[in-house]
Amino acid sequence: MSMKSLLNAVVIFFSATLGLTLIWAILELPVSNHIHLSEQVLIQLDASGVRHPTTAVLLNFRGFDTLLEVMVLLLALLGVLDQTKKRKPKNLSISIRLNQPYLQALLWSARVLVPMMVLVAGYLLGVGGYQPGGAFQAAAVLAAAGVLLNLSGLLPTWREPSWSLRLGFIFGLLLFLLITAMTLFLSPGLLLQYPITLAGIFILIIEAGLTLSLGLILAGFFLLLSDEVNNKKADE
């Protein structure tokens, strides 16, 4: 017991020291030989195909990071699928999850909110080119709509995904990958180098595809995990 509290003390001491050193370092931060990347982003913005700097960075200047990052999401989904596919599915009626008044409120709000959320997602996707918004935010709103539908009992939870659902999960990722591969065949032929005239349309296609697939994946996290019931008896 004392061993454990000693360990706690050591960890807390180290963390506190680290925290204070970090804050000291931040306050002492030199700014002398600092590169101002934000200026370069603005200079090159015209060549990026979009007018919103963050979207330009996300899908053009550092689009490679984004390509790898959507693969991280897919990996998490693969892990979730691997962990949920072995369970015995049990249909949990909605009334167990929620009390009656809540349920009514949810049903009502789902009917009103979900169409609005889909509209908002479309709006966010559409404006991403020139103001805050874009695929990730739109996908998150779509996923939230999915969660709400599921909670109000209008959308069943997902089990082992069918062929078409799997295609939906990776559709946007595949599209992104194929456009990336296509850039190698267009002039000038570097990975992810969009021709200036086509950059805008490429980014829009990729964002639309990602909105769908990321929305499905994010919703999938909830819809795949949420219907389990621990009905397995202890082994004895």
């Binding site: 934000s38 991280v72 994010l218």
Partner: peptide, 21 residues
């Protein structure tokens, strides 16, 4: 600065993926 903002968007998505897993 849009560069770290884009990085953080990447990071948030990675974090939710890791949380789900």
């Amino acid at each position: 600065d849009p560069i770290p903002q884009a990085m953080v968007l990447t990071g948030i998505v990675v974090a939710v993926a890791a949380t789900a897993l």
